[in-house]
Computed example of a mutant assay.
Amino acid sequence: MQGNREFLIEVLMLSLLHHPNLVSLVGYCADGDQRLLVYEYMSAGSLEDHLLDLPRGKSPLSWFTRMKIALDAAKGLEYLHDKANPPVIYRDLKSSNILLDHDFNAKLSDFGLAKVGPVGDKSHVSSRVMGTYGYCAPEYQRTGQLTVKSDVYSFGVVLLELITGRRVIDTRRRNKDQNLVSWADPIFKNPQRFTELADPLLKQDYPEKGLNQAIAVASMCLTVDASTRPLIGDVVTALTIIADGADIIESVDSPSEPSPSRSFSYMNKSSGSDRERAIAEAKEWGTSARTTAMSRSMR
């Protein structure tokens, strides 16, 4: 059941948008004041069901399953931002809106709050602030100005949930630890503390460098200045390598600042030269992010 406007938006969006990482609309019913949407069946439920507040005895998601889910969600956003015409801002990315099939392939669902993005020379669209508390980008909450970078912030929150196994807002914790992003922020600035962000349920069963890479991506997505957040296409490139288990962060100093908004080469696994170039660029991005985090911690 949902309001007329959200119902019509979702029917329209799902009728026009088609991608392997977006849930498909099977049908809908509008009878009087009753509204019903029928999605394709996603047998494993939502990401929230498998990540947050697990019942005793339920196995946690493995590290690489988490990174695969993150990559799938990022690919869904990339389609909305870069390939849909006109571009679409999802506006309600959260763990409960990421649905999973029996192989843990992830698809974005619930497009009732989605909005057509800025076109032409416009930098943003203005909108009444909607979404879920904790996932909304700070500039959107403050001004109502919506861009694709607002979705990138929300993605950073979901990625941080995947890394930590913690809810974005958890009132059962101490006051200073209730907001996930606020709790993680000082740790972002000190790479020596990165392991504190890893979900204890993983029992240290993750690649240390892969953890560092994922934290670097989350940190850049969650920067307060929207202009310095990476484009979602950059995130897809980095997560493709992380999900593959490739070693892209090494202990070398980089004098340059990270450039998250520049485009990486598209990774085409059928082309060795493209893949090598993408890995080299992602390595530069990852090491620059870590160097910047270190310099911030010393200020």
Rank of each mutant, 00 (worst) to 15 (best):
R128C: 07
V26R: 08
V235T: 01
R56P: 01
V88K: 04
R299T: 09
R262M: 02
L14A: 04
L93V: 15
S263D: 14
S95T: 09
P191M: 00
I163L: 03
P55C: 11
D199S: 05
S96A: 12
V168P: 00
D151Y: 12
S256D: 12
E284W: 05
L25E: 10
K68H: 15
N179G: 09
L51E: 10
G272F: 12
V125H: 06
L239Q: 00
D274T: 12
C136A: 13
D31I: 11
H124C: 00
R229L: 06
S295G: 09
P191S: 03
T195C: 14
G112W: 10
V26G: 09
A73R: 09
F111L: 07
R262T: 11
S59K: 14
L17H: 04
P230I: 11
I9N: 09
E208W: 05
L162P: 02
Q204C: 08
K83Y: 13
P138C: 03
N85M: 08
A106M: 04
I241H: 14
D185Y: 13
V88N: 00
P20I: 11
V129P: 04
R275H: 11
G286T: 10
A114R: 04
K283T: 08
N212Q: 15
D170F: 13
V224C: 11
R229S: 02
F7L: 01
Q204K: 15
L159K: 08
R66T: 13
P260N: 07
T132E: 07
Q141Y: 10
L159I: 12
F7M: 02
S46D: 04
T171K: 15
